[in-house]
């Protein structure tokens, strides 16, 4: 391999894959596949955006790239909107001092989909039964949470799970685990928050 076909980098917004300008598209695609396959599930659930250096991607090429990336379990994310260079730099610095990264997803997470992220996750949509959301920080679902949520997966006991409608199959916070009761419960009427207190996961109305 004389030249790397693609450079995979991690940044604030998840992963970015950049494609060199001069290489033949098919070659880029094969090399990308080899790269991702060798990493096995390392990238699974990661948010990613694809950028091309000095080249215009045809819609078909773009589509093919996105499909490849999805095949390896990654979630496509639109590239971040560039504000002013200096301003962005300052903002990043400010965030770093304050807390972890946050992944924002504007979609429904469906059965069989697993979102894994090192940081917080905010979902503008629902998490359906059979879906899994795992992160090292907090989970906020601005919708219904019916799947499995694992907050503070690296052992952060103070992590919390928030949802407009909190009806999870299972809740996990750090090493604590709790499941929904077997008998049907009345639907929650408002936003609720789950956190660990007195060594169990407790849910309370959020106000």
């Amino acid at each position: 391999m004389s030249k790397e076909a693609c450079i995979i980098k991690g940044n604030k917004n998840g992963l970015s894959i950049s494609i060199p300008g001069e290489m033949e598209f098919n070659e880029v695609l094969t090399q990308l596949k080899v790269r991702l396959a060798s990493a096995e599930q390392f990238f699974e659930g990661a948010a990613v955006h694809v950028t091309a250096d000095n080249r215009e991607l045809e819609p078909e090429e773009k589509h093919q790239l996105e499909r490849t990336v999805r095949e390896f379990g990654m979630v496509i994310q639109e590239p971040p909107v560039r504000v002013d260079g200096i301003e962005e730099h300052q903002r990043e610095k400010h965030l770093e001092e304050e807390e972890e990264d946050t992944l924002l997803l504007r979609r429904t997470i469906r059965s069989g989909q697993k979102i894994k992220y090192d940081g917080n996750i905010v979902i503008l949509g629902d998490v359906n039964p059979g879906a899994e959301v795992v992160c090292s920080g907090d989970i906020l679902v601005l919708g219904s949470l019916r799947g499995v949520a694992h907050a503070g997966c690296n052992g952060n006991v103070s992590a919390s799970v928030f949802a407009f409608r909190l009806e999870p199959t299972q809740l996990r916070i750090a090493n604590y685990i709790s499941r929904s009761p077997d008998e049907k419960l009345p639907k929650p009427l408002g936003p609720e928050m789950a956190r660990v207190s007195e060594n169990i996961i407790q849910i309370s109305a959020y106000s």
Binding site: P129, T169, Q170, I177, R179, S180, D182
Partner: peptide, 8 residues
């Protein structure tokens, strides 16, 4: 089987 919520 009604056991979905027990899967780890």
């Amino acid at each position: 089987m009604g056991l979905e919520n027990r899967i780890v």
